Amino acid sequence: MKDKWAHITATVFYVGHLKPAPGTWGSLVALPMAWAIYMIGGFWLFALAIPAAYIKGYYATVWMTAGKDNHDPSEIVIDEVVGQWIALLPVIYGIQMMGVTPQTLWPGWVAAFVLFRWFDITKPGFVGWADRKDNATGVMLDDVIAGVFAAIGVAALASIYHQVMM
């Protein structure tokens, strides 16, 4: 039972088995999940979902990789969901503060997705450092850091946009 739970969690309901580029599929499925969480409980539920998913994902990754040589199999995409959600934090916050529908800030959703994928794929600096850790912490942490970098980028782009357009 624990193995099945870990597999469903780590692959985000089997999305991690989609080819090609399971990480991109994992990031993509994170978008409607984020929208749904926000619609159910607003910014604070979304913000609380991130550490909850991290913890659940960490343990699922530990169980999925136990006794295996590959510490980061491509089908594990819960880390992409967590990182993508972090990248979306400024967008979800903006939606809440402005009192608009999630669709209104669609450029922020796109920017969060593109920036997160770029940082996750290229693995600059601390992202690469975390990725080189040969354990579940590394699997999860590189995407957390990529998500933080992407969130900073999203906030910077929003600031530039609002200064130019306002």
Rank of each mutant, 00 (worst) to 15 (best):
V100C: 04
G67D: 04
F116R: 12
V127M: 01
G138A: 12
A6E: 15
V15L: 09
M140L: 10
W129R: 15
I95A: 05
K56S: 12
I160Y: 07
W5P: 00
A49H: 04
I152K: 07
A34M: 08
H162Y: 00
K19H: 05
A36S: 12
N70F: 01
W118D: 03
G108Y: 00
W25N: 08
F46T: 11
H162M: 08
K56R: 12
D69Y: 08
W118F: 11
T11M: 02
V62E: 15
P32R: 04
V81L: 11
K68G: 08
A21Y: 09
W5T: 15
V77G: 14
P102S: 02
A136D: 08
I92N: 11
G42F: 09
F43C: 11
K19F: 01
I76L: 13
G83L: 07
M140A: 09
R132Q: 14
W85N: 08
G94C: 07
I37W: 05
A87T: 09
A112I: 04
S74D: 15
V127S: 02
L89F: 07
I55Y: 13
K123C: 02
V139C: 04
M33L: 15
M165R: 10
A66T: 15
F13Q: 04
M39G: 14
D143V: 09
M33F: 11
G108M: 02
V148K: 03
A112R: 10
W106K: 01
A146Y: 07
F149K: 04
W35T: 08
K4P: 00
P73Q: 14
T137P: 00
P73Y: 13
W118Q: 04
Q103W: 12
L157D: 05
D142A: 04
G99V: 05
G108P: 00
V91W: 00
V81F: 07
A34D: 12
N70L: 09
T24V: 07
K2H: 09
V144D: 03
A87P: 03
I160E: 00
E75V: 01
F113Q: 10
L89N: 11
V110H: 03
D79G: 02
D69E: 15
Q103F: 01
I160V: 15
Q103D: 06
K2Y: 05
V91L: 02
A36D: 09
T61D: 08
M33C: 11
E80I: 06
I92A: 10
W25G: 06
E80M: 11
W44I: 14
I78G: 05
V100L: 04
